[in-house]
């Protein structure tokens, strides 16, 4: 409301005052929250790196039943082949336990699981599991241009596995056309 006789200010003055007031009331650009995008990027990269290194460097679940022996070797672990696990409780092919291991395995697995009694080295149930994998692997090897005459196996054995049991497993593998074994060990032992 204008007072009598007061002339309103011109448009230029009005706009200048409006700008001035807007700046005063709005103040500087207000930061409502911290910009954490850069930190988030960094953390996501670290997370992806950790998850990736977990899956590639060590996918062997070690526990009281399966503790790998230490070796001075520092070469990279071979990833090619069928994983055969020898724990204190059983022999596993892939995810499945095929033969139980007795508490005292210095004579190998129980005679009932062997082809010709206690002195034999061939473990029948392990052989059956291996031959099934071998057929699949033979087809894959033929298709991918690799030598189909033999397969490979990764032996993941507990450090206290008796030599007799180890030999029984290796012998059974050999009898099922597995011609190369990769014995998995932990790096970092002192010589």
């Amino acid at each position: 409301m204008t007072t009598a006789g007061q002339k309103p200010a011109g448009t230029a003055t009005f706009k200048r005052m409006l700008r001035k007031e807007t700046l005063r009331r709005g103040g500087a650009h207000e930061v409502n929250f911290l910009n954490i995008t850069a930190m988030l990027d960094m953390m996501t990269i670290i997370l992806v790196f950790l998850l990736k290194s977990m899956t590639t460097s060590n996918n062997v679940p070690q526990s009281n039943d399966l503790k790998l022996p230490a070796s001075v070797l520092t070469t990279e672990a071979s990833q090619e082949g069928l994983p055969v696990l020898i724990t204190k409780k059983g022999i596993n092919v892939g995810e499945n336990e095929v033969v139980p291991v007795p508490p005292d395995a210095s004579n190998g697995v129980d005679a009932q699981y062997k082809k010709n009694g206690a002195n034999d080295l061939y473990i029948t149930r392990l052989g059956t599991a291996l031959s099934s994998f071998r057929e699949t692997d033979k087809a894959i090897r033929t298709a991918t241009g690799k030598d189909p005459n033999s397969s490979e196996a990764i032996i993941v054995a507990d450090e206290n596995t008796p030599y007799r049991l180890l030999c029984e497993v290796l012998y059974t593998l050999g009898q099922n056309e597995f011609a190369k074994f990769h014995l998995m060990v932990n790096q970092g032992a002192k010589q």
């Binding site: 953390m43 060590n58 014995l183 932990n186 970092g188």
Partner: peptide, 22 residues
């Protein structure tokens, strides 16, 4: 998740020794 991964993962590196049937 990051804290959980760091707390639970014990980084152990493995190697393989190549051998043949006995």
């Amino acid at each position: 998740v990051l804290m959980f991964v760091l707390a639970t993962v014990s980084v152990t590196f493995t190697a393989t020794i190549d051998t043949f049937p006995p």
